[in-house]
């Protein structure tokens, strides 16, 4: 366990915590960007360069910007007067703590069976591209179809329907 790992996980966890806990919604979206960046750096630390840069492009470049747009379009940046947490927040907190306890217990119980340090995998972006159009070409096409359908669906759902209102 290197110092870099501790620093990057502290960055990611701190970003996630502030994204969940902060009162102002815009601040939450910015903290979420920090969490995404921390995770992308963890991917790079895991020698997964392609996944790390895809994470930066897709999450920081697209999803975070989309969330900021949605917050501004729905005027969600105004902090509500009756608190930002729902009525049954205690139950949600207990459920989340229980899930973390079970997951952490499972990881710690099986820690001695997990593999130790292995050699750095010699995988290049070229290998990933060949695999994407070779063995994984059908999932790739299905994901392309899904992305097209989701984009069209999002536009249709969020569209103004003025002519029907008249």
């Amino acid at each position: 366990m290197s110092l870099v790992f501790y620093l990057l996980s502290a960055l990611a966890v701190a970003g996630a915590l502030s994204a969940v806990l902060l009162k102002n919604t815009v601040h939450c979206a910015l903290a979420l960007t920090v969490a995404f960046a921390g995770l992308a750096l963890l991917f790079l630390e895991l020698d997964a360069q392609f996944a790390g840069f895809a994470q930066i492009l897709v999450y920081i470049g697209a999803v975070a910007i989309l969330i900021v747009f949605a917050i501004l379009l729905t005027r969600g940046s105004e902090t509500p007067k009756d608190g930002v947490y729902s009525r049954n927040w205690l139950a949600g907190l207990v459920i989340a703590a229980a899930v973390f306890a079970v997951l952490g217990w499972a990881v710690l119980q099986s820690a001695w069976t997990l593999p130790h340090e292995t050699a750095v995998p010699a995988v290049t972006v070229h290998d990933i591209g060949v695999a994407l159009v070779g063995r994984y070409v059908l999932p790739l096409e299905i994901v392309a179809l899904l992305l097209t359908a989701a984009t069209i669906g999002a536009v249709i759902v969020a569209r103004h329907e003025k002519e029907e209102a008249k």
Partner: peptide, 11 residues
């Protein structure tokens, strides 16, 4: 767990 807590407790 942090994400689950956020999804369950925020309004």
């Amino acid at each position: 767990a942090i994400g689950l807590a956020g999804a369950l407790t925020r309004r």
